[in-house]
């Protein structure tokens, strides 16, 4: 450090000038600041973003899930709870009666998606789970898991799995 730097003052004035420049520039260019006004403005989700889960449905609206428990077994957080019931005569042998995911435990690893042999669960809604004021509200039942559609992507990412959609 030379003398000019050692007495601080000139350097402080330089620093103050820099911050003042930022302040004045940002005052007049508020729109060009990188901050997103979050709930109103959102960045587009990347195609493979692992969001809130979705139980996929057949064309007639029934769940594709066969209650095989593979996802519950694969889940590292043990947050999937399934109760099976007798399948419909024209459908699969079993179907879920209860399908709960505890979103407070879920680590969004998507191992459940990979484990499913029937493409019955996906994480392609592009949504983050909203805040809630009780723990019960974070346990998503079949209704919540079928509520939101998948986001539309030009190339749907998981198409190759399970042969057909």
């Amino acid at each position: 450090m030379d003398f000019k730097e050692r007495i601080y003052l000139w350097e402080i004035v330089k620093g103050l000038w820099i911050t003042l420049r930022h302040l004045v520039y940002n005052l007049f260019h508020q729109r060009s600041m990188p901050t997103l006004h979050y709930p109103e403005e959102q960045r587009p989700m990347p195609a493979r973003y692992r969001g809130r889960h979705r139980l996929t449905q057949r064309d007639d609206g029934s769940l594709k899930c066969t209650a095989c428990m593979l996802c519950a077994t694969a889940c590292p957080a043990k947050c999937i709870y399934i109760e099976a019931q007798e399948g419909l005569p024209e459908g699969t042998e079993k179907r879920p009666q209860v399908y709960n995911i505890d979103m407070l435990k879920c680590v969004y690893c998507s191992l459940c998606v990979e484990a499913c042999p029937c493409d019955a669960i996906r994480m392609d809604t592009g949504l983050m789970p909203p805040p809630a004021d009780s723990r019960e509200k974070f346990i998503y039942r079949i209704e919540e898991l079928t509520k939101y559609p998948a986001i539309k992507h030009p190339n749907p990412p998981f198409l190759h799995r399970c042969g057909k959609l």
Binding site: T19, H22, L23, N26, L27, Q30, M33, P34, T35, H37
Partner: peptide, 10 residues
């Protein structure tokens, strides 16, 4: 607000 504008925040 001043500190925010200094640091390129809103």
């Amino acid at each position: 607000r001043g500190s925010a504008f200094i640091q390129n925040r809103i």
